[in-house]
């Protein structure tokens, strides 16, 4: 099967490699910035195009991978569905739930497979947490605490830092935790959220969210785009008979590059290699789904539900009141 990568930034480069690892052929690399498309196309022996609509319509493309900024997703999903392509879309599915519903309708009408990259479901550490919790080793889980964050990302033309476009830490970052908590522990009843979304003097966001699940379980999730450097993920599950904890800072490998002639502090870069990248696992799941096997671990409805929780959180942050999901 042939893949068109739409959006050739960091995520486009990552997913092109993952699709390629799965034996797919990268046929087209599309990006409004032609140079970016060309650079990625060169690596994979693909055609580079700047005209995204043309890329979606190409007959030699079976799968479209949407790795462009969030606000472009809705239109691209609809166009790809109309062209009859299978669709891999980075999370969030769309910028708004309303857009997401329209996109899903188009996908259903076209009868094409759609996969949204809620990759945390495929992360080995999170799957281990889920399976350990499910095993009953810590009894009944009643409280969940997560942290995910680091520097405020930039993105093409700084789109991440335009909170109207990215939705900030809640919609772009914590949506991972919303999805995973819902996946592992069930539907959310209520959301309360505080966030910063500061533009001056420094662009940063920091979001603190409490989810109350339908089961009564409480989850507090913290998301940071406010740290000067690094990226860290922490998770803690508290149960009636014990606790499960995870901290990415306890990675097995720490690399400390020596800085020559520079005043900047040395940064420790942690690394935690696994047998297979979770991004490749999600591609394998998607490919099996296209092949007519069982639904993927993440369904389009799951992606829309996670986005809905994020939207409720942003509403709560604005109003200062809890929002019923």
């Amino acid at each position: 099967m042939n893949v068109a990568i739409v959006g050739c930034g960091a995520m486009g480069q990552l997913h092109a490699q993952m699709a390629s690892n799965c034996g797919l052929r990268i046929a087209v690399c599309a990006d409004a910035v032609k140079a970016r498309a060309s650079a990625l196309a060169k690596i994979h022996g693909a055609v580079a195009v700047a005209d995204i609509d043309a890329a979606l319509a190409r007959k030699d493309v079976d799968i479209v991978a949407l790795t462009s900024p969030t606000p472009t997703h809705a239109k691209l999903i609809v166009a790809a569905a109309k062209a009859g392509k299978a669709i891999f879309c980075e999370k969030p599915i769309t910028r708004t739930v309303a857009e997401g519903r329209t996109a899903l309708t188009a996908v259903q009408k076209a009868g094409v497979p759609l996969f949204v990259g809620h990759v945390v479901r495929y992360f080995q550490e999170f799957e281990a947490l889920r399976l350990q919790a499910q095993s009953g080793v810590i009894g009944h889980v009643g409280f969940i605490k997560t942290f995910r964050g680091g520097m405020c990302p930039v993105g093409s033309a700084g789109w991440f830092r335009d909170f109207a476009k990215s939705g900030g830490a809640v919609l772009d970052l914590l949506i991972h935790d919303f999805d995973w908590i819902r996946y592992a522990f069930g539907d959310i009843e209520r959301v309360f959220c505080q966030n910063l979304m500061r533009e001056r003097p420094t662009i940063m966001d920091y979001a603190m969210v409490t989810l109350t699940l339908k089961s009564g379980v409480i989850a507090q999730t913290i998301g940071s785009w406010a740290h000067p450097e690094g990226f860290r993920v922490k998770a803690e599950l508290c149960g009636t008979d014990g606790m499960l904890t995870y901290d990415s800072a306890e990675a097995p490998i720490a690399v400390m590059p020596r800085q020559h002639g520079k005043k900047s502090p040395n940064t420790i870069v942690p690394s935690s290699p696994v047998d297979k990248s979770p991004y490749q696992l999600e591609w394998e799941d998607f490919i099996a789904h296209i092949g007519g096997h069982a639904p993927a671990r993440v369904t389009p409805e799951d992606a829309l539900a996670a986005l809905h929780i994020a939207e409720c959180a942003l509403k709560s942050a604005k109003t200062g009141a809890p929002v019923t999901v």
Binding site: G139, H140, G142, F143, R190, F192, T210, T212, G216, V217, I218, C238, G239, T240, D241
Partner: peptide
């Protein structure tokens, strides 16, 4: 948001 969610032997909230 609070509750007795961790099975502690209390008549109040444990988290």
């Amino acid at each position: 948001e609070k509750g007795r969610l961790l099975g502690r032997d209390t008549n109040s909230d444990d988290v």
